[in-house]
Design a protein around this nucleic acid. Structure first.
Lengths: 234, 234
DNA sequence: ACCTGAACACCGTTCAAGT
DNA sequence: ACCTGAACACCGTTCAAGT
């Protein structure tokens, strides 16, 4: 009975990090809706109430989960240090944000969770500090860097909230509703027909997320480069 | 007993719109957390289950609430029609979005609710159609209009998600945490000290939301104007 | 057609008790 | 110190019954 062949899980002591990582695995696998304290405990082979010895409550658990995801960005980048120069700040910033986006695409529930957080987590703050550092090495004033962080908003972490949700269901009533509304939406209809025509692979309601994200990001980065020139000439 | 002096509410029949408007009043007054089906029913002097005769479920109720808020934008604008021209598209778009923002400031819970919606509501679609119309009258191609709508994202409705939440509590542990993290956040510290210095009214963590929103909006609109010129020259 | 009461299947969380 | 079982105060929602 003292055999080595037991399930190893009950032996490993619970820690906050193990809780966060199990939560990420649970959300990845079964969706954010399945991330309840009870399900999370079950995934860790433990009773729900045991979790409260390691995290204060569900909100604190979600904060930890977000921090863990941003740590994944940090690992992907090989750390937050850079050697950006006045010549390379824009591409460095761009690459960094697109890397963050790649991590978010692995955890598609993460943006929604981040949007519900009240304060930035420690690693998120260090990530933001690194973005500011890149801007400063590009010659940004503190004031312009401040504006830039606000202007980027959640895009700095690799996502942005779309009003236009690409209705990938495509089926049933949503299409019916759209057809009913279409007569009052002449410009959207024009846009969709033209965009669909330009890109034969596209379906109604379908958009290339990557292209759109990069378009918006470059709009902001080019704009910041322009403001930077104005500041320098003053 | 057939006196006229009774509470009038029970006489008025319940309708979807009355439900939505009561929900908005509830969220305005007691916060979005208090917007439960039970509380909403109580506010309408009715049992919780009566609501289900007028809205399919809570999600449908929230969709209705969002649509009602966007209708408030429409009223504020005196309708969605415009007479924008190639010369005025940018300022027309800007004014329209800042009007939307003013409505959002009256219902500060609304952005968070909108972020949880799966599809745009009918009035939101008509609002977006009107923005596209302004762009087209400014000479946008359907393709550029499409990119522009994605690039604006939720900013089109007057809000954007900030990573930097201005920690207006100012008190207790959050300040302690910040002080502990500060040594690893040299650029944020530099930024905050400088920005605080420039603006004597500012406190650590405080930002002028209006200024920041307009900065980001103008960055995008100027960028779009630039792309528009490129498209024309092709 | 519209409203109701009781009940169901969940939540997050507290508490007193175990080891 | 860490984990547990039972319970509490909520949720959204179903159902059968009322008028």
């Amino acid at each position: 009975m003292t055999s080595v062949a037991e399930t190893p899980s009950p032996k490993i002591p619970l820690t906050p990090r193990r809780v966060f990582q199990a939560a990420i695995a649970l959300a990845d696998g079964r969706g954010i809706g399945a991330l309840t304290m009870r399900n999370l405990a079950a995934a860790l082979d433990v009773e729900a109430m045991s979790l409260y010895h390691h995290v204060a409550n569900k909100e604190a658990m979600l904060d930890g989960v977000v921090d863990e995801v941003v740590q994944e960005i940090e690992r992907e980048l090989g750390g937050f240090d850079t050697d950006a120069t006045p010549a390379t700040w824009q591409s460095t910033l761009r690459d960094r944000i697109l890397t963050a986006r790649r991590v978010m695409l692995r955890h598609r529930w993460a943006p929604a969770v981040i949007e519900t957080r009240k304060a930035a987590t420690p690693t998120t703050l260090r990530y933001m500090d690194s973005l500011l550092g890149i801007m400063f090495s590009g010659g940004f004033t503190p004031d312009l860097g401040h504006h830039a962080m606000h202007a980027l908003g959640s895009r700095a972490l690799g996502f942005s909230h779309e009003l236009f949700q690409p209705d990938d269901s495509g089926d049933d009533e949503s299409t019916d509703l759209m057809r009913e509304l279409a007569p009052r939406l002449p410009n959207i209809v024009t846009m969709m027909t033209e965009v669909a025509h330009d890109d034969p692979d596209s379906t109604i309601g379908w958009c290339d997320d990557e292209t759109e994200f990069e378009f918006g990001l470059d709009l902001l980065l080019d704009g910041l480069a322009d403001r930077l020139t104005s500041v320098r000439q003053t």
